[in-house]
Write a protein that binds this DNA or RNA. Sequence first.
DNA 1: AGCCAGCCTG
DNA 2: CAGGCTGGCT
Length: 574
Amino acid sequence: MSFWSKGMYSSSDVCLAGCTAERLPPSHPDPPPSNLGGFYTSHKDSKNIKGLIHRIENTASGLSCSIPVEYNLSTGSTRTPLSPDSYSHYDWSLNSGHQAKRARVENIIKGITCTDVMPNQHEETGCVREEEERVEVSALHQKHMETSGTESRSESHQHLREVRTKFDPICKDEKFPRWSVSSEAPTDEALSKSCSESESSPGKTHQEWKKVALGHFSSKPDRVKLMADILKYELSRAVSRSVDSIFKSMPLTQTPTEMENSETTLPPQFSESMENKLRCGTAEVLLPDVQTEALSLVVQKPELERPQNFILHSTSAVPLTPKSPLFFSSEPEQASEQNNITHHQRHGFKCLTDGCSEGGEPRLDTYWNLVKVKSKVTSRSVRSPHTHTAPVDQVILENLQLPHVKLEPDCFEKNNLYMLNECLTTNHLKKAKLMFFYTRYPSSVVLRMCFHDVQFTRCITSQLIKWFSNFREFYYIQMEKFARSALLEGAADVRNLTVSRESELFRALNMHYNKANDFQVPDRFLEVAEITLREFYIAISMGKDRDPSWKKTIYKVICKLDSDVPPEFKYHFG
DNA sequence: AGCCAGCCTG
DNA sequence: CAGGCTGGCT
């Protein structure tokens, strides 16, 4: 049943959060390299990936200065390592040489920024406006600062200006919007948007960017480093895209409530694949411990020892071996259930009051289910508390429709599991009696098929055979009794001997095999009973009962009638 | 000998 | 319903 499979594998044992926290790379680390018109170098510490962003900050005096800003890529926040006051103090306490350089830097920066704005904008706002809060995320810039060491800031900016000139066409193409860190840190959304946008234009811009970038770096170390950066960027972008696609699909399959519990709840595709893995990977499937009472009858013998036996399963259980997805769909179940209902209706199976849904529709799937395995005094089975095994062929059996025997009302929540028993229970006896309505001489194969929840041993087989022997005994005794009674009553014509549901003979038999009267006896049984009665009547009337083995002929006749087991038997018992 | 069905008994 | 016993069959 779907409700069972739904909660079957609580995703609590699957930690998705761990993946997001540790395996999924944050979308930030994608070096927003050249699209920001600069170079970026990431410095990884244990937790955060930080980069130094040189913010061209406009001061009140209109002068710009470069302030190293530590940009936390994990949080998207920025902070200056020094307070503005202290920094400005540091900045303005430079010596005259530095001041000269600073003047040069300012000019250069002005030149850089002014080339970015449109002439009209330039006139309106001025370069200072454009420079304001402009962020230069420059890894390579930082690299230069680190490697050359002696390289001045102005030279770096000169380098930066050149690169920006190269990349400006790309930036102006608006495929790579610039972010202003001081006012707004680049968010995931912006980054991913940029990526998706760049991707949406058949890679033209992206390729162009790579060409330009590669062409620009003539020196081998730079090219190698850029290549590495590009590869990192591409890799992280691909991963981010994959992760995004996965998480974008989650809202489609999860309710808001489920989303809240997304740490422990997997989307169906996850849980399904996980289920498949669990099934395929192990011979046993862990199921929620919903069983209480009946578990005492579960046999702990692993399936490997009994490859042909059928082992306990839930109604939604699936084969251990991978099967086509059709097996996992609910359609076969629904179809079989419909067959079941129609069949029950066709054969007049009663829908007991407590077995019907509110709408009056028979709830055969829940009410008519396999025998509730009840603890018995003679039970010697061993409990296997948490491990239930799923049989390979149970789906096939399920499609054949297992016997639906009225269960006690309190077993509704338990009857979705079939137990593998080492012994026969009262419910097995009940089932056997009901089976007797269909077959008087069941073969061992039929018994195995019908009692697939039982671990068949020689003892079990003998017991079942003995049961049916006893059933036959009572049956033949009743037949002989009523045949003699009819003969004594002076029934002249054997054709007057009929067995109907109102007949006394039927009541006696029904009382014995169907005491609770919760099973609609098939018409076939009435036919066979009538034949048996007439056989006895004829034999007795002909005086054959004087032969000590006179019944054996009748036994053979009745046994032969079993050879053509009515199709409905397969529906209910096999 | 082993298995099985039937009969008898409790 | 189960156990003991018997007879037939392989």
